[in-house]
Nucleic acid binder design. Structure first.
Lengths: 195, 195
DNA sequence: CCTACCGATCGGTAGG
DNA sequence: CCTACCGATCGGTAGG
């Protein structure tokens, strides 16, 4: 019984993983359940023994990934770090998500619009809270005179956008290694913020 | 005859404009020709008196917008400006595209993947050339010691990504005005690059 | 610009 | 996990 459930769970994981790659590549609406079934190696109808609907797959991908982000930020809040160190940790975390959980992270960023209700509204709320917490860290850095006087909103936007831009790098021939990307992006962004 | 053609052209423009807004909002595959027809105020079948296919609309939107970008860069190449001034002009141009041609620009950035062949390959080539020219400007700035020693690739990526990130601002309640956005983004990015 | 309609494909279900 | 199939919707066409 336990064995059976574990087997089912791992097949579900395989489906979600393949779906994530396909949603990332072609987008959620342009990915058909038949294409996904082909990739998994079963018939389309058989997918429904493991998942309830196409929407559920998208929800799982996005909510898990959002959760990873929230957990990192929670840990950061109680860490003994100054604002610059916190921002560096944030930047490195997001860059690493982009590099090592490329499909999931990109799907979250690009496909949340295809979430059905109430999941979409809930996601937007979660995201608003997340970026607000980022802006608070930046504001604290300004207050403590560790960070230049910038609009926290602009700094937050620039950081998250720059990481998102690595999608372009990920699709390209990668003449630059992940570590070089990470270090240069941290240097560029942190240098632009340091006092 | 001329009158007739002008009338047809303007209806075609209306269709493309409405399509651009819908492709931006929901993505190309999730936008149906029936929804588009509703928005224009005619039956779906009637769209085909003005356009040849759904794909053609996407091609028009993306190629026109890419052309605008190329023209700006061409003008910049022959302008009497130093590297920093050229970069500032580039940043302001892209921010303004994002603000004033929001639908078209966002569709180009997000929906090019849904271009059919040979249009997709052609677009990718055009884009590769464009970003190479941007990197050349940055490299010249480094050579002339106007710009910090950064990887031109990272700087280019950060600039274009930051502008793209304004999509988030555009969707939000806009507590910050376009002019403030533009000036702060220029300041933040240029400051990060100046020697 | 419309009515009427086409074949293809979609997400998903029934039943085994 | 499969075969067989459903109703809905898709992009697009014929004919007027």
């Amino acid at each position: 019984m336990t064995e059976f459930k574990r087997k089912k769970a791992s097949k579900k994981e395989l489906i979600i993983q393949k779906a994530s790659a396909m949603f990332r590549e072609k987008g959620f609406p342009a990915t058909s359940m038949r294409d996904l079934a082909d990739e998994v190696g079963i018939e389309a109808a058989s997918l429904y023994n493991h998942i309830q609907s196409k929407s559920e797959i998208l929800q799982e991908i996005i909510y898990r990934t959002a959760n990873d982000c929230n957990i990192h930020l929670d840990n950061l809040d109680v860490a003994q770090l100054n604002s610059i160190e916190k921002l560096e940790s944030l930047i490195r975390f997001h860059v690493q998500m982009m590099i090592h959980q490329f499909d999931d992270y990109t799907v979250m960023i690009n496909e949340w619009i295809h979430l059905s209700e109430p999941y979409q509204t809930n996601f937007i709320t979660q995201r608003r809270i997340y970026v607000q917490r980022m802006e608070n860290i930046i504001q604290q850095g300004i207050d403590h005179q560790e960070i230049k006087t910038v609009l926290p909103y602009i700094a937050m936007l620039t950081i998250l956008s720059s990481v998102r831009g690595l999608e372009f790098w990920h699709r390209s021939e990668k003449h630059v290694s992940p570590q070089v990307i990470e270090d240069n992006m941290v240097a560029f962004l942190i240098n632009g913020l340091k006092k």
